[in-house]
């Protein structure tokens, strides 16, 4: 099902990202937000991108959508979607693909919807821009149908209401309807449930899973919460300091993770499904600077297993070490990583 292959060659995947780099000039220096990212995503698959603020996960999604065009950001590498390099497309060619082939769901549905227009107006617009010839009545019927499919009760009435008249959960449902109205082949959901309450989050995640089965779109779900991707993602990419540090199937990430940062993430969150620990185990220190990132491995400043003398963690930039389709960007040799995980990280219940 899932091959997470960070190779340099071409692939027949739906989305194929190669050595993506995104930099922004700022007063303090050049921010290297994404610093060499490579991954593939097949049709109908779900990729979870997990990372903390500043890891480059949201910037990646915006680069795929081409939202950096016209800004001072510089995007390098290649993003092939359906065989076309999105970075090389003319603005107009890319615009036509936005919303039609690749759609996006944002974190905060209240600010992502225009406050002055009705929900229906905004969804209808998203459809009409790609279906210019459709009749007004047909579009409206289609949008009402979409609203119904995302579980908005009474869509005939709701379509003419404004975003502020919707609850948070309903607004996010409307955003999902807007993203899916053109049946895109790729949906990027950027922290789709972070702004929502936990009970609403559960509803939205269930909805996304159901809808994906219907429309067979590939999904990239970006989140800081490993719990959110546990249920949804086929494969997971963990990002740190603008790079992917570990990739793999959901099972690999959760049951045999090999990167010390992934360990840190899994250990630092308190879990209600396990014995309560007397003390949380945080990752020490702070996220790395994106302007002057640490030398060597970006994580070495916070890594409990760093070994400068023998492994050169503070000097050598690690490349992906791929064993069993499981790429890990770490200088610790694979057998030792596995040993550390088995003896120190794994808990009885996993």
């Amino acid at each position: 099902m899932s091959t997470w292959v960070p190779t340099e060659g071409t692939s027949d995947a739906l989305l194929s990202v190669r050595d993506l780099k995104v930099t922004f000039p700022t007063e303090d220096g050049l921010v290297k937000a994404v610093n060499g990212l490579t991954f593939d995503l097949n049709a109908g698959e779900t990729l979870g991108i997990v990372g903390e603020s500043g890891s480059g996960k949201s910037v990646t999604s915006q680069a795929i959508m081409g939202l950096h065009r016209g800004t001072r950001a510089k995007v390098e590498g290649s993003i092939d979607f359906d065989g076309k390099n999105l970075l090389k497309l003319e603005d107009e060619e890319l615009r036509v693909m936005r919303g039609r082939d690749i759609a996006m769901i944002f974190q905060d549905p209240l600010s992502a919807l225009h406050p002055y227009y009705t929900v229906g107006n905004q969804i209808i617009e998203a459809y009409k821009v790609h279906h210019g010839s459709a009749s007004k009545a047909a579009v409206r019927a289609h949008v009402i149908d979409m609203l119904e499919r995302v579980g908005i009760p009474n869509p005939q009435k709701r379509i003419d209401q404004y975003p502020h008249e919707f609850s948070g959960g309903m607004r996010q449902r409307a955003m999902i309807a807007m993203a899916l109205v053109n049946s895109p082949r790729l949906v990027i959901a950027d922290e789709p449930t972070t702004a929502l309450d936990v009970t609403v989050q559960a509803q939205i995640l269930d909805l996304l899973i159901d809808l994906q089965k219907d429309i067979n779109a590939a999904i990239i779900i970006i989140t800081h919460d490993l719990g959110v991707v546990a249920e949804m993602a086929d494969k997971i990419m963990v990002m740190y300091g603008g790079k992917a540090v570990e990739g793999g199937t959901a099972d690999q990430t959760f049951y045999s993770p090999e990167h010390p940062y992934t360990w840190g993430l899994l250990q630092s969150m308190p879990r209600i499904d396990r014995e309560r620990l007397d003390r949380l185990r945080p990752i020490p220190g702070n996220p790395p600077s994106l302007i002057s990132p640490p030398s060597g491995c970006a994580f070495h400043t916070r890594c409990a297993y760093r070994d400068d003398e023998n492994l050169g963690c503070s000097t050598i930039v690690p490349e992906f070490d791929v064993q069993d389709w499981h790429p890990v960007r770490c200088l610790i040799p694979a057998p030792k990583r596995k040993a550390i995980f088995d003896t120190e990280i794994r808990t009885p219940s996993s």
Partner: peptide, 24 residues
């Protein structure tokens, strides 16, 4: 509330049933 908390454990998560709250 408790059943809605996502758990970072795919196998458990896939087996789990949720008590969904309806409405706003």
């Amino acid at each position: 509330l408790l059943s809605a908390v996502p758990i970072p454990d795919p196998r458990k998560e896939n087996k789990r049933e949720r008590i969904l709250l309806k409405g706003d």
